[in-house]
Write a protein that binds this DNA or RNA. Structure first.
Lengths: 234, 234, 234, 234
DNA sequence: TATGAATGAGTGTTCATTCAT
DNA sequence: GATGAATGAACACTCATTCAT
């Protein structure tokens, strides 16, 4: 008679495991549905918890999104870092950074989109850990450019932070169509072309004026020498 | 007996005027509140109409946003176009485009943000008039690069569309902090630096081939001189 | 330059024609969409008038529905009437009425449904012309039963108005599945069966009274015979 | 500073109690206002819950109506069933069914009207539990007729399902005026009359021909007997 | 600590009807 | 008489978040 609904077996897991479960399922739901359409109840169900439990670990839905994206971002950074410093040569490193960024985007377009449209535009962005992570992530470019300038490989008049904007701005701009599901992206070729144009635009050479004057003078001298030597031959 | 609410005095205006009024007030509300928080009822009130009237001209809130942004974009394009073709010289034109884009963003940061986060990321973006307008808007860079390549001013190995991504990507990336209200943006200086780095990265120098020919000639001449001097020594 | 929108050619038609046009298109829209979903603007467009014009002839949407249904009903009645009185014999007439009612329903299921769900249930029904029309329409059954009683064809103890309820109630009840689009309705067979059961249920047999009289007489005669035989016995 | 509205004291009840409360108040509001005019917010308020809570248990307003009517219907059926099988005799059972149906209608005219106009006409009716309930409810008539035919009480040429349509159709048709609040309904008398006409219409009798011949022969015999006895008397 | 029932704010959209032109 | 622009009321439904148990 007293057929009480069986109380769901309470699974007491370590908090870290709970958090991990929730974040895994949140990532799945956010990437599938987008931020607005993602339901806390869906996330909870997938994670095997009830709605309310999510709020023990995350202040609200937005923080959950933030944490998911920060988590993802952090892994990307760590993964890149450990390989980046093994790469030698300025061109190679630029190419590596561009390629890696493209790859990260192509692998997780939905998360990328969320990061761009939901978080980066947020007035609170500067206070997010994501901001710090991004600084770390993009600092390599600034360092790289500084070093290349120092050793005379790059022109000394380029702004390292502008190069950073150019690199990431170009990469991101190149992926918008892909992010909207408008076809594929050949990340190898794109990385090549972006690295190429960036590197060539930054590499130091004797200034055009100098080299032309030099060439003219050399040619004139040579001609005279030739004439001289010709006269002598005659 | 029953105090009927007095029907608002009907104000009959030409459709164009109504549409213009609504768009003006929609622009104001959208830029102040953002898309989600903007209320149709606010927009209507400001425009001096009732809510329902908006739906005579706009299918829904989203279309209203689209139209507002397209309208703004179109004006920017027209305004730019008429001045752009008066500018002479590749560097100047690049600088003009960069400057104008920066200026547009700085003048309407809120609309820019809406365009970036609400429309550009929309899967329907490709079907919007905004997409067409943007193509028109950015095509100039492609043309400019092509022409500069044709006359030998730019290297022939650069991809015009990549330059376009680089220009707009760099500009937009440079403005994110500003768009989040994190300080001002010196558009003059920024435009200078972006134009500089872009131009210098693209401009042709005497090709390596030329340099090699020159080197060959110098070497030959030197040899001859050496022979001459050898003759003198003799 | 001053390209004014061409004002729609005003078609001044006699009011009757207008009303007829509107009712034709209203009937089409109501039967297609149902009452709630039918739009005045659709009706107006089909009729080649503007929304407001409808209100010159009909007080509101509901009245328009009423008029459409009344119009339809009236035609049915007239059509039936002119054929009904040519039919001879009680059974034939009952069968005719049943058949005709079924036929009317099958021909216009959507209108029937509207009449049943929108109008017949309306507290104002009694004030509608439809009510009067329905009285006229169904009166025949009452008359028919009365006459059949008078001539001794039907039992004298049946209530003509109950027979009316029985006839129409049975017909309508038999058509609900069809009205919900759940298959076809064989109106010929259905009419036969309904007429059969009704007629047989009403037709007079020697009344119980007659039988009793007869029984009395038999009993009396028997008694007398008994007496006779008793006389014989005596 | 900002005076936050105090959150309503949470009252945790078992789901069944909540559902019952909501259905009670929904029934009250639906019967008072009709379906369209009934407000979810009214129903919620009466039930002592907030609007949203209703949607924990009912998918939408329509489902709530369905459940209210089904619930009512189910009770009617159960109540009838337990008494019906105690009734003996075909005539009595018909009379009971008619009476009970009339009584149910008279007791809840508003719910009846909703069932007729909102649900029975719904294209989804066949998928509703109400449909099943109705089948159960009306099946008795079919069984009853079959049995009466089997034992020779009813004519063998009547269609049991047609009788069902006739019974319910007649009852419902007889109540329309009452359902529109046009006066009272004497359910006792009405039940008598409907049962009478139905029963008499169905009951088997010696065919007309047979009975007449029989009567003639009886009468002739009687006359002869009388003549005979009269001769004796004389 | 986990549960999950209950909260309740919040708004875009439709369309019959009106009435100035 | 016809037009059709403008009115404006009206409301079901969602779901993040809370908190009593």
């Amino acid at each position: 008679m007293a057929e009480k609904k069986v109380r769901k077996r309470v699974n007491r897991l370590p908090a870290e495991q709970r958090i991990a479960d929730i974040m895994v399922s949140a990532r799945a739901v956010f990437t599938t549905k987008g931020y607005e359409s993602a339901l806390i109840s869906d996330i909870a169900e997938r994670a095997g918890v009830v709605d309310g439990s999510i709020y023990r670990f995350f202040a609200n839905k937005r923080e959950l999104l933030m944490r998911v994206i920060e988590d993802w971002y952090e892994k990307i950074i760590l993964e890149e870092e450990e390989r980046y410093y093994a790469v030698r040569g300025t061109w190679n490193r630029i190419r590596f950074i561009v390629f890696h960024h493209l790859q990260a985007i192509v692998r997780e377009p939905a998360l990328t989109k969320l990061a761009f449209t939901e978080l980066r535009a947020d007035p609170q962005y500067r206070q997010m850990r994501l901001y710090k992570l991004n600084q770390t992530y993009t600092r390599k470019v600034v360092e790289l450019v500084r070093e290349a300038i120092d050793v005379g490989e790059f022109r000394s008049d380029v702004s390292p932070s502008l190069v950073r904007s150019m690199l990431y701005g170009c990469v991101e701009h190149s992926t918008w169509a892909f992010l909207r599901n408008e076809g594929n992206l050949d990340i190898d070729q794109t990385a090549d072309r972006i690295a190429e144009i960036l590197y060539n635009g930054l590499v130091a050479r004797h200034s055009e004026g100098d080299i032309l004057v030099l060439a003219d003078r050399l040619e004139a001298a040579t001609t005279r020498l030739e004439r001289l030597s010709g006269a002598n031959d005659a």
